[in-house]
Design a protein around this nucleic acid. Sequence first.
DNA 1: GTAAATATGTTTGCGCTGCAAAGTTGTTTG
DNA 2: CAAACAACTTTGCAGCGCAAACATATTTAC
Lengths: 105, 105
Amino acid sequence: MKSEDKKQPDLAVELDRLVHEPARLKLMSYLYLVEGADFVFLISRTGLTMGNLSAHMSKLEKAGYIKVEKEILNNRPHTMLSLTAAGRTAFESYRAGIEQIIGKF
Amino acid sequence: MKSEDKKQPDLAVELDRLVHEPARLKLMSYLYLVEGADFVFLISRTGLTMGNLSAHMSKLEKAGYIKVEKEILNNRPHTMLSLTAAGRTAFESYRAGIEQIIGKF
DNA sequence: GTAAATATGTTTGCGCTGCAAAGTTGTTTG
DNA sequence: CAAACAACTTTGCAGCGCAAACATATTTAC
């Protein structure tokens, strides 16, 4: 490396706040592995309330990070979530960013 | 009443928001390694503005995570930051929490 | 010698956001 | 039929991070 690099703010990496928020980070982390989980299951898995899961889900959907499919199953609503390609990319890049800040695990 | 662990919400881990905030995460990550850095240097290192660094520094200090030492050096104010023992512990436990959510790197 | 620029921070104003609580819609049960 | 349940959505507000404004002391320019 050259000394012409005045400062190297390797910590100046920007983390995607949409992913960074703990509730959403948990969701995306899980969806990254399983490729599909339903609303009710995710509540028990993440410890979120229905209200909060609903709100975060909407944000992630609006951002294009997850796909939300609603259907009627056994006469009841049923909601399935899954990561989109953009969501996978966003998660991977978030992971890289955080690793850069925190260091190797 | 007695509860059996039917579900293991390994994602239900709580992240310390004081550490989680990107600006503070960067600060603590760096201080974890070097054990002492001054205000001006940290600005270039983290990409924060003076105002934001000042605010986050105050929060971390109030939380007991860092120690802030102010002196006059060459007729100018000089501020040194360093992690406290509590800060080190908090950072380590944050790291463990995030690893549990995101997975192994 | 004083006005302007520089250095090192702190404080303030406010827009955004996450969370708990309340609301919605439909179904089952007694 | 009413009350309880299931699966969500919407709302209200407190708290927070950020940019901008402010504070204070020193050095430089003229």
